[in-house]
Design a protein around this nucleic acid. Structure first.
Lengths: 265, 265
DNA sequence: CATTTCGAAAAAATCGATATTTTTCAAAAG
DNA sequence: CTTTTGAAAAATATCGATTTTTTCGAAATG
């Protein structure tokens, strides 16, 4: 008792939320691999797999199976799973292991409302506080997104994941001038959740609608004009609209009541 | 590739957020000890220690030190630390270990605003959706809280922690009828954060004000009368007022610029 | 004298193996 | 036929030890 320690501010300390290096599993395997920890690697990969629907809802996550599949020690895997649990992507019960969080209509509704609630506030604050750099980020992100959206009509399968990343970056850029780290953090969590529902509904259907693209443009314009009320209203509508696709898919899939059988890995 | 697994809904699966068994470290050691996992035990204990200020901001959290201090394996500790990281109570950087999240005035401000934002919405929804059971929970929680508040004037040191727990339970009961699990989850995170600042400021000063007690009563009455606008306004005021004490303490402490030296354990 | 290089000591990350618990499955009892 | 019981099997949780990385001071270099 009574060990003394001097704490210094050295370099960058991660706040629970990482910079979201975006999903990188489906296409190839090439990871950017900086000095990433094995735990972070496992965390990113499993998160991607869950978001992409590669690991489907309610899938049991057996540590030893994942161990031989991913080639990562059981402890590191458990550490990553602990993080995912706090992200609300994985559930854990007593001593009965981990499962991918189940999906439900009420959950989707909750997520949609919360994302709307949070992201609109963040956007309003960003519009108020945003400087010229922010405008630059927004314009750049929109540009990159719209280019992918053009190609999306040609080859859905090839550009789908790319679109997801660009879409995330656009939404992220829009609110990047929001001065509240906590608000951004919670928004990120909700965005992940809604992305999971979106990508789960994309497994068979091809969803991204032209209307979505138009909405993006309108939001961009309103944001640059610093019209917070209009921008937030457009964003709120945009979020609800996007969720409707997931909802429709959910309802369609739920009619034929079947056993929940999933592939892991 | 292609391992098959059938997922069933067995019993209760924890959603990242635990039922918050409240702080249980400073008084004795007696844990309720159901079939709690060692990881959960470590998580709860470290969380309490951080919230109570037993582990002060910016303290380095060395796994092997904690290992010999807590008598818990390094892996379980790391798993608990991973959870705390996602709770925003601990920061982790690359391969340089963990520290208790630093405090700052801007962070306190952010937390206060976010807690206000979230908890008021939760309260409004609870007032709208709350049934008779909810009213019962609220009245019961208020009763228990007010009893402790009476005793608090006599012996601050003895009842301080008890008051913290009752206060948490009262606020929790107020919003317990809110139908949004995500909103409740985020509120819980922010409540923890604000509790940490409150308890850090309590180390020397005795804070809980009579005004706080009166505010509690007014909120209770407004909630039971289903007057959502009034209740949320009172709550918003209550949260800001409570944070002012922490702010004051922070400003007072910050003038004499000293090195950040802390005790661990 | 400032800066860089080097190496020992400390700390963190990771792994493999063991101990405990839960689940399964089938036989026996009600 | 349903429920209970109990042993085998599977899966989970936990620990100790090894490997890798960082830290920090001292010596060497410009």
């Amino acid at each position: 008792m009574g060990v003394r320690a001097v704490a210094r501010n050295r370099r960058s300390w991660d706040e629970g939320a990482r910079p979201d290096p975006a999903a990188k599993t489906a296409p190839g395997e090439a990871a950017p691999e900086s000095a990433k920890t094995v735990v972070e690697f496992a965390y990113d990969r499993m998160r991607s797999d869950i978001l992409c629907g590669n690991l489907r809802p309610e899938t049991k996550l057996r540590v030893d199976k994942l161990h031989e599949e991913y080639g990562i020690g059981v402890n590191s895997l458990r550490e990553a799973l602990a993080r995912l649990t706090m992200d609300g992507l994985v559930l854990t019960s007593g001593k009965r292991g981990f499962i991918v969080k189940p999906t439900s209509l009420t959950d989707l509704k909750d997520i949609t409302e919360m994302r709307q609630f949070l992201e609109c506030r963040a956007l309003a604050q960003a519009i108020e506080a945003g400087d010229l750099d922010w405008e630059g980020r927004v314009v750049a992100a929109y540009h990159k997104l719209s280019r992918v959206e053009e190609k999306l009509n040609d080859d859905q399968a090839r550009w789908g994941l790319e679109w997801e990343n660009r879409n995330r970056e656009f939404h992220s850029a829009l609110i990047s001038a929001c001065p509240s780290p906590w608000l951004l953090q919670f928004q990120r969590v909700m965005y992940n959740q809604s992305q999971r529902y979106r990508m789960l509904s994309l497994v068979e259907t091809s969803i991204p609608r032209d209307a979505t693209f138009r909405e993006h443009k309108l939001i961009l314009e309103a944001a640059l004009e610093r019209d917070a009320p209009r921008a937030t209203e457009l964003l709120a509508h945009h979020i609800v609209k996007g969720a409707q696709d997931s909802t429709a898919h959910f309802l369609a899939k739920d009619k034929p009541r079947r056993k929940a059988v999933q592939r892991v890995g």
